[in-house]
Structure formats: C-alpha cells, structure tokens
Design a protein around this nucleic acid. Structure first.
Lengths: 310, 310
DNA sequence: CACACTTACGATATTCGTAAGGATT
DNA sequence: AATCCTTACGAATATCGTAAGTGTG
C-alpha cells in the first residue's frame, strides 16, 4: 500500500480532535475531502481505524494499535524533513575546502567572516596547503572544493578562474630598484634574490619567466613571512603575487608591480566534475566569487604604492 | 510537503540500484514515471538528492543526509503496516471475554479449541463469572464481549441472542419422578430440592416460575458440581439448564426436560453499543454464533434421556 | 550509435470542493 | 432544528505510459 504523510497527518489530527470537521480544518481540507482521506487510509490498511457516528469519533482496537506508531512515524518524518530543510536553507551544514596558504592568510579570512555572518550555522573546515595537495584533496573527496593556482586539465576536476594575481617586486626603499621608473625582468637579475621553495606556486610561476640560473639567489625559504623578514633586513629582494603583499606592509619596504605580460598567477576554484557541491559548499563557492580579489595591488589600503608615492 | 511511501521506496531503490531503469522496474513503473517521481521528491525537499548524468547516478551531499534517515523511516513504516496487517488477517491479536461459568466449563472449551486451531496467533483471556459481573466487565471495557444470561436493555450495550437454554430435571434413577410420564412444575414441589445461590442466573429463572416459598429447599450451593454431588447422593433433586447437563453424567442419575413454556434461559452475546469489536474479537464472536449450542439436551451424546430409556 | 536520463503529451486516476442526504440528539 | 458524518458529482490536478529528445562515451 501507499501511505502518505498527508494521511498520517489526517489520522493524527482526527485522533486528537475526535471530530472530522475540526480535524479537516487543521489539515486545510473540506470536511468531505478529509472524510475520503480517512476512508482511503482505512481501505489501505484493510480495516476501520475509527468508530464513528454523528456524536462520537473514537479509535477502534486496530486504530489504537496504529495510533501509537503513527505519531512516532510522523514525528520522525517531520524531524527528518526539517533537518534536511535546514541544510537546504543553509542554517545547518558543513563546508570543507583547501586553499593556498597565501589566500588562506590574506584574502580568505574576510570571506569567512562574511560567510559566518550570513550562515552562522554552517561549519567550515580549511586546509591551507600547497596547490598540488589542494587538488589531491579535491580528487579524493576530502574537501568540497579548493582555491588553487595550478591550471588542471584533468577531466575529473571542474575549474573556474577566480582571479588573476599580478606579481610585485618587494624591496627596501633604499634599494636602487626603488628609484627605477620601469621594471623589466632583467633588472632583477643582479640583485640578491630571496626565493620561495620550488614546491610553491609562486616559485613555479617565477621560474617559468625568469631563468633561475641567471638569478642571484641567496636564499630559498618556505614561508612568505620569512621572505618578508629577509627582505626587510636587506638580505635581498623578492617578487610575490599581489594577494600576498599584506605580508610586506612595512615603512622601510616598497612594492611595485612588475610589468611583465604573462607573469600572472591564476587562482582557480576547483571542484570535482562528477558531483555537485553541497548547498553549504555552493554558498561559500558563490560568496568567494562575489568577493573575488581583484589581484591588483591593494591589501586594504596601506603600505602600497600609493602610500609610498606620498 | 507531502512525502509518500511510494517516493521513499523509489528513493531507496534508486540509491541501491544507482540506475533509473532498474530502480523503475523494481517499483513497477516506467522509467519516465519513475524519473518524475524522483524529481517530485527533489522538488518537495527543495534540493537535488542525486547527481546524475547518462553514466553515473550518485547521491548528493543532501541525498546522503536523507538516505540515512529514509531507510530507517521506510523500514519503520513497513514494520508498522505489517504488524497491523497481521492483526487484520487474524494472525495476531487478543480477545478477552466474560462468560457464565456454566458456558465456560461446558460449551466454550470446544469453541476455544476450534478458535485456537483457526487463529493460533490470537491470545484469549476468559473471565468465568456470573451474569451481572459479565455485563459490568463489558460496560467497563474490560472485556470485548460477554456470554451472559440477563436480557439487558441498557442503551450502552448491544445484545444478540445466542441460544435458548431449556431446563431439565436432574434426579436419581430411583426417584419417583423418574417414572412419571409428564413433568409439571408442581410435581417438583414435594421433593427435597438442591438450589443454586440466588445470584446465579439459573436460580433467578427458576424463582420466576416456581414459587420459592412453596418449594422444599434443602440446600443452597454455589457450584453446579456441588449440586451434582448432592443429587447423586440422594440429598435432593434439582433443575438445571441443558447446557450444564454435562455435570450430571452418571449411571445412577437421570435427566429429563421440563415441559414448562417460558422456562428457558436465554444466552446472549453482549458487547458495547458504541464501539465495534476488534478483528480478533469479531472472529471469536462469529465463531460462537456459528458453533452455537442448540440448548436441547445433548452434551455429547451420553447420560441423557435416551440412554436412560434403554 | 548505443545507452541512459529527460521532455512532451494524451489518457486515465485521484483529489478536491460544493451540494445534497441521512442519522442522531 | 441543529449537528455531524457520508454520498454524489463535476472540476481541477496528478500520475502514468508511449514516444521523441538530448547528451555522453
């Protein structure tokens, strides 16, 4: 037989009201339609569930048996549907994503704050790691999506470009480069250079355009904060994407865009091609796009070209 | 929203098969109809539950959430409906009835045996007590129905006559009455008489026709077995309904119908007027009618007039 | 091009509300 | 007469199956 939640609700209502007219109202039905609903239920289970005459409505023995279970069943059903609805309406849920450390530290916090404000019931988990691992996490289904730099051509991954991140020179203000009007790649070759590790996406972009062998590499470190320390103390200069410039806000330092066509790091949203994002993940994905960084030089308005220019 | 068991079954089937065509067959539906069913479910909950392309069908995140509960919900529902069906089909249940001790000991056991054979899963509970208490138990809802003697005119009780129970003289074969051709009430007046208690239905019927003051009462006892002992030892004679004659099967005793118009004890099936019998109770009720005693002298063919006549 | 899901569409079934009917107090 | 459940019936809606459409490997 086919038992519908509507029939269950009608049964429970009639058992509470013991009156067809009132129970029908409670179910937003005309009384005859309600009557038919109860009859269909009784036909379905094969027996009368209510004894009724014009004065009294009460459960039969079989009705009592059914009533005990029906209430539970209906509550269960309502609970399940409510829970699902809370997910659909983004009042509950969980998103996990992976992101490059540079994004995780600089741009993401603002997006997360906004997301938490919009959807306080949704939990977020973030893995800040290098691009390759970000992609692996997506492939393995460990995260809903990733913010990575590598352009992936795998069929199993769906990518969407989030922004284009331009590279900037960072050096001390007392460096000769600070006074040059235009900056060409070869201008950097003679200066001591602080590199990031080869596994980083930043380094990979740089190596593609500035031949590593011609450069005057003095150091190779893992973290941008370390690069910052080195540059600030005059160990060398460096080149980093705009989205990481927040690390280099310091009165003694200056940053300038490198005007090298093609030297941009593309940031992608990467998800699995074979499955849709959860409602919660989609919400964060959409917000990321809405609040996409512009990739030009501007961590919130301090210690950038403009400030230096003044 | 209105969630039907058909939709739940479709969802569970698709989750198991991960293939619309096969799942549709399992649900005895055409594939497009099945597809529409799933879509209606998804529209109802407000989100996709399956990711599907032509090659793969798999749960979305929200689908996984729903799947865990749906399986439980469906099992619950099936269990509840199965249980109810077992009651409707009389493979489970419980009947309780009250019956006069005379019926409980003589005629009922055969009916119960038959009932147990037909419906081995139904429990019976029997209260063997006097007519008034039988009726009270029905009124209070403590039993489903009763086999009682009193004609009740209460509106709250529904009665149906089961049989008419004729009264018989019981005495020793060496008693003078054993040789009389016709038996009239007054013929009994001179003989020592063993009575049942005034609360018994048998006594009440007798008192209505044979004036107690004119009788030669030697004893008043509670149980028919005691009456039997007294009569068999020559303490006195007695008059009892045909349905109790099984107590008086003994070579030294004889029983003869009293030919007194109007002196019959009517046995009624009594139930509450305001509610129907449970399926189980109705089954026993119907069987009682089908196997109704005839109320003539014949406990299974022994120690009756015929035997004495030979 | 074969397979698998979706869309289109007409036929059938179900569900609904209004109005009339019947039983009880 | 008033109350309350049931029946009757036409209209709106839903559901179903067949057939055509679409997209993917």
């Amino acid at each position: 037989m086919n038992l519908s939640s509507k029939q269950l609700r009608a049964f429970v209502a009639l058992n509470e009201e013991r009156n067809f007219t009132k129970a029908a109202e409670q179910c937003h039905l005309s009384q005859p339609a309600f009557s038919a609903l109860i009859r269909a239920l009784e036909d379905g289970v094969g027996t009368r569930l209510f004894d009724r005459d014009t004065r009294k409505v009460q459960l039969t023995t079989e009705g009592q048996l059914f009533a005990e279970s029906a209430r539970r069943l209906l509550d269960d059903m309502d609970h399940i549907l409510d829970d699902l609805t809370e997910h659909v309406e983004r009042r509950k849920g969980r998103v996990s994503l992976a992101a490059l450390p540079s994004l995780a530290a600089g741009w993401l916090p603002g997006v997360f704050a906004e997301f938490r404000r919009l959807y306080p019931g949704i939990e977020i988990s973030l893995t800040d790691t290098l691009s390759d691992q970000c992609l692996d996490l997506v492939r393995l289904g460990k995260v809903d999506f990733a913010l990575a730099a590598g352009g992936t051509n795998t069929a199993e991954l769906a990518t969407r470009m989030l922004c284009s991140d331009e590279f900037h020179l960072v050096c001390r203000k007392d460096n000769a480069l600070a006074r040059q009007k235009t900056l060409r790649p070869k201008d950097l070759l003679n200066h001591p250079f602080v590199h990031l590790a080869r596994s980083s996406s930043v380094r990979q972009h740089l190596d593609a355009l500035l031949h590593p062998l011609q450069m005057n590499t003095v150091l190779e470190v893992e973290h941008l904060a370390t690069v910052m320390g080195m540059v600030q103390n005059g160990v060398g200069i460096s080149v980093v994407p705009a989205l990481t410039l927040f690390h280099f806000q310091h009165p003694n330092l200056m940053t300038r865009p490198l005007d090298v066509p093609g030297l941009t790091r593309k940031i992608y949203l990467v998800s699995r091609a074979d499955r849709s994002l959860s409602v919660a993940a989609q919400a964060l994905y959409d917000l990321a796009i809405e609040r996409r960084p512009d990739g030009k030089a501007s961590s919130p308005g301090r210690a950038s070209r403009k400030k230096i220019a003044t």
